[in-house]
Amino acid sequence: MKVAVCIKQVPAKDAPLQITDSGAWIRETDIGFEMNEPDSFALEEALRLKEKHGGEVVALSMGPQRTKQVIKEALAKGADRGIHLEDDKFFLLDPLSSAKSIAAALKKDNFDLILTGLQSDDQGFGQTGVLLAELLGLAHATIIMQIELQGQRLKLKRELESGWFQWVELPLPAVLTIQSGINKVRYASLKGIMAAKKKEIAVIMRESLGIAGEPTQRVERIYVPQKAKRTEFIDGSPKEAAAKLLEKLRHEARVL
């Protein structure tokens, strides 16, 4: 089975975010980046499918040069080769333009299965996988918590709201978006890291994909959101703060 995993690189979870003066994006200097968490679960799922059923895992990432790091990480964990859509023209595209670029890059390879995380922790559009399916004419299912391969079909556990799930079946080839927590993600081994150095990463520029089309939407400005509630902050040493908080909960909020 030939599996592609689409991986995004996003600012690290604990990175202090500072918005640029123009409000266009965050300051990228001085912060760390990491593999988008749901994508790391998608990668793990792809590696497990390969271990069970054989085939190839291809890690694709779109983004500036720094993005190469997550492809290398995927190769170190066991992906066979990488595709890097490395071009400034790929940066901060709208969801449809992003998906068109990725779809064009994936098209030639005829993958049996394309996996993505269900959304990214930075822009969080949550559309890429579904858009890829439509653009490539493939069946899809989203927010997947279990994958079973049954011949040329997949049996999938979809997560729904409020603790509900549903089994669905689909024919291959297909696109799935993977939910965090579907598996336990592995670490790269030292051997894996060494082996990754010899693996190929194909670099693709946007021109070469021959995609036309205007963006459908524009992010005008990002900013710190306004508070819905007025929070009363309690300060002091931990001991003082604890005492003050309990006092407030007992006598002001009257909930203790």
Binding site: D14, L17, V224, P225, K227, A228, K229, T231, E232, F233, I234, D235, P238, K239, A241, A242, A243, L245, L246, K248, L249, A253
Partner: peptide, 30 residues
Amino acid sequence: KDQNAPIFEVADYGIVGDIFELIPALTEAL
């Protein structure tokens, strides 16, 4: 510990601090 954590947007009371200091302090006070 992060004063900009979005949870504070819905909180009535907030403490910016380390839970490993505050949980014991609350436990002791109670």
